[in-house]
């Protein structure tokens, strides 16, 4: 059985960390430390996100109005800032989740993050996988069409791209088939 940890070991290198952190904040207001802990739990089992990167990303999100600060508490420890996602931020997360990526190698890392965030937000994870499948099929049709009348070298180049897309599609189908299992693991249900 593939566990979340195994997925994460394989595919976190090409994720959009900014959108992923924003998506985590979409589950509810949180301190920076807790955002990092959630990220590490879902995506960082091999390579936890550095505190510096977390706070730099949160500062950027704050500057862009995608999150807001709920108040700064004085007291012990450096981490007394609590953040919540804004409406603009929620819209950004939704756009990110439901905008298919251009089919290319390592795509599934970002798609994996979108799927997990959608499950955390109780959004339509199956729907975003369907949208990505459609994007992949469109690219596969383009390449199939490009092969007609092409010379053998061009055909082989198309074949190479097509087999990679096919591998992505298999991953998408398997993930769709395992969504219930993944949902249970991600949400702890």
């Amino acid at each position: 059985m593939y566990t979340l940890r195994v997925y994460a070991l394989c595919i976190v290198a090409f994720m959009d960390n900014t959108q992923t952190l924003l998506g985590i904040l979409g589950t509810g207001p949180s301190y920076g430390y807790d955002v990092k802990r959630s990220y590490d739990r879902y995506f960082g089992s091999k390579k936890p996100m550095a505190f510096g990167q977390v706070y730099a990303t949160l500062a950027r999100l704050l500057r862009d109005g995608l999150i807001a600060m709920l108040g700064e508490e004085t007291g012990s420890g450096p981490d007394r800032k609590r953040y919540e996602i804004t409406e603009v931020g929620r819209k950004r997360v939704s756009e990110w989740m439901f905008t298919p990526d251009v089919p290319e190698a390592q795509l599934q890392s970002n798609l994996f993050a979108k799927t997990v965030i959608a499950l955390l937000l109780e959004d339509d994870a199956e729907g975003l996988l369907d949208i990505q499948r459609g994007e992949h099929m469109a690219r596969l049709r383009e390449l199939t069409s490009a092969k007609r009348g092409a010379n053998v070298m061009e055909v082989l180049m198309c074949d190479h791209a097509m087999f990679h897309i096919e591998a992505d599609l298999r991953w998408i189908d398997l993930t769709a088939a395992r969504l219930t299992e993944l949902r249970a693991q991600v949400t702890g249900a």
Partner: peptide, 11 residues
């Protein structure tokens, strides 16, 4: 099979 389906106009 996606490669077979890719010969279609849509799926």
């Amino acid at each position: 099979d996606p490669r077979t389906a890719a010969h279609a106009d849509r799926e």
